[in-house]
Amino acid sequence: MQSTDDKTGGPEQWFTRITRELSAAWAISRKDMITYYIKPNIIVMGILFPFFMFLAFAIGKNAPPGTLIPGLIAITLLFSASSIEPVSIPIERRVKTFDRLLSAPISLHSLVFGESLSGFLYSLGIACFPLIAGIILFATPIEHAPVLVIAMALTAFCFATLGTLFAAYPTENVGEVMSMLNTVRLPLIFISGVFIPISEIPQIGQDIALFSPLTYGNDMITYAYTGTSLFSPLLDILALLIFILIFQFVANRLYKKFNE
């Protein structure tokens, strides 16, 4: 029912409105940081799961550990960014604090953005561990540091929004959202060039890979480390931005629909 096109007048009022919306989104995000960052299921799904999954593949791969860092960063971003909201939102539905957010004088876009922001920041923080490990332990060179920063930020935000989108499913059960999310997240890591280069997978897999945001995130991170990539970094940026907009838009629609 929320409207995002309230009549608020001139540019000054618009500026006030946007400032207020961003401020409320930041408040939601800060609340999530304090409340959920150290919840056990977030630690398991956001940190331990990607680490052990990656370890399982890395052990059998016979490649120098340093070369695996880009892939590890990519799947850490995927799992950690998309793990906060699928945990926090069902819990908040159960204890009815989510109604507090839904009835606040903010737009649904700000709510979705605020929720995603906490996943984004969490993910960036967690992804710094493989990044620093790569630098300190394996002296993994970074060819284009600014590209790496942009790649990590966009990938993190894209998957944080994906997590918020899945959390729109109207359940109070964390497990239900996580199960649905994993049916998407797990196949993504196999078709997006993280473990197997896209050029080595069957044609149908290569076609599907184009629809995976992880393909572009991983491609850009690989470019930042090695200077080589499947697509141009600009195309990767564009693709990730489009995915973010689609996820934000769909999440917004779903939260609206499921509150009918």
């Binding site: 029912m1 409207s3 309230d6 609340k31 409340t35 604090t97 109604d99 507090r100 004088p105 903010i106």
Partner: peptide, 20 residues
């Protein structure tokens, strides 16, 4: 249609004590 302006003047105390 004017959701945010309408809510700005409201205080809502729900049946459940929905505190964090």
């Amino acid at each position: 249609r004017d959701t945010i302006a309408a809510r700005q003047s409201m205080g809502i105390v729900s049946e459940t004590s929905n505190v964090y």
